[in-house]
Design a protein around this nucleic acid. Sequence first.
DNA 1: CGTTGCGTTGAATAAGGTCAAATAGAGTGG
DNA 2: CCACTCTATTTGACCTTATTCAACGCAACG
Lengths: 246, 246
Amino acid sequence: MTAQPVLKAIDIPQLKTVCSSCSLRELCLPMGLSENEIEQLDQLVYTRRRVRRGENIYRAGDPFASLYAIRSGFFKSNVILEDGRDQVTGFHMPGEIMGLDGISADRHACNATALEDSEVCVIPFARLEETSHQVRSLQRQFHKVMSREIVRDQGVMMLLGSMRAEERLAAFLLNLSQRFVARGYSPAEFHLRMTREEIGSYLGLKLETVSRIFSKFQEEGLVSVQQKHIRILHVDGLRALLGRGQ
Amino acid sequence: MTAQPVLKAIDIPQLKTVCSSCSLRELCLPMGLSENEIEQLDQLVYTRRRVRRGENIYRAGDPFASLYAIRSGFFKSNVILEDGRDQVTGFHMPGEIMGLDGISADRHACNATALEDSEVCVIPFARLEETSHQVRSLQRQFHKVMSREIVRDQGVMMLLGSMRAEERLAAFLLNLSQRFVARGYSPAEFHLRMTREEIGSYLGLKLETVSRIFSKFQEEGLVSVQQKHIRILHVDGLRALLGRGQ
DNA sequence: CGTTGCGTTGAATAAGGTCAAATAGAGTGG
DNA sequence: CCACTCTATTTGACCTTATTCAACGCAACG
């Protein structure tokens, strides 16, 4: 892909991350920065890390040192309560930044688990703060990223607090679809990386309920569901499900 | 209430906010800053604004320009869906910062409504970014404030996603209690500023359910409830309610 | 070819929601 | 100060939705 001098040097450039040539730069931290500014980011984001399916980038309680930008793959984040209950708080795809929860207490507050083999760019936070101290537009962009996370969370609260089960699943599918589009994938056809149980946890439902609603949507011709393969057949039908809750 | 020619000069010094002499400085944005640094904040936070009960500091869609630190009073924030459903996404008390949702899109994403006559300190965001560009520890502190908001939201998701009704209300009361303590008020006895409906919306329950559970807690001797006046009689009893959900 | 994990489906049940009525306070105007 | 109004709250009876429990199917994998 990128330039490869010779032998041992083969892996190094491969793992060297360069924001300025990254296809996700319009979605990720570099969004809205000039060429010049992005090059300053390149200095900062110097390692990429492979994460195997099932592995964690960090766990709740781990000391916080870096943010992680998803380069490829798919993640979930989840919080675990003392009694063992496990709540999925988000699903994350390429271009999204994980780890923002760790800043407040210098420890991560949740786990971040890869749902498929993935790669993340490691962004040492101290250096990010340093650089954003220099580069004004990076500071600005970073604030937007954090704020976007807050707005996203409000959306989830809305979903959990005032939607019924069918609406939740419809909203979930539409949200995924939209995010896939932004990444150049099909809006209508995609592969769920998470289990029914993880979807349920995220949506505040039991896995059986999720499964039943998938079946119902399928009967109604809204989507075609084959295990983890989803095809949205009737977007407006799904949209119509929102808007008229209880 | 607003500009009144003659009296104006009287109100201005009264309304001048000074972080360095503010009793909330250990909870608010100045947290952890040196005397010297706080004085730089003083330059920045130069107006205080009165908000009457029922008034909004901002509404969803309003252009974003400032953050607001609560000086006194009590607020809720809420999002409204197209179909009119209204979800309370948080309750806010003195020392807390509101408006962080507005940074991401330069427009506010939710409404912020005073639940009692209140005062907020207006923090012009452009100037905050500017100053935090200068004062390193302010940058740091501001990031922590945003991150804390993200962690808080995760807690709400946990609550909405995986707790049953009684647990939610218990968690809600304990959380309020804790925040009151941090502000020097009694942990056991307080006045709810919000209605049952607002509590219900926040907790993803109907107001009748909230009312029933209050009654149940009262029967069980956990709390004494008289309309909006709450007295926690048995904290450990409430705590025990968490931890063993479904 | 059995094992294992994930997904689907059905029947019974429980948790909350809905609807309706009664009550309690707070504020208002006479 | 009292009657009146309005809104918030409480409570009961009934209903709906989602959960629970259990059985079964399916696909991947060693």
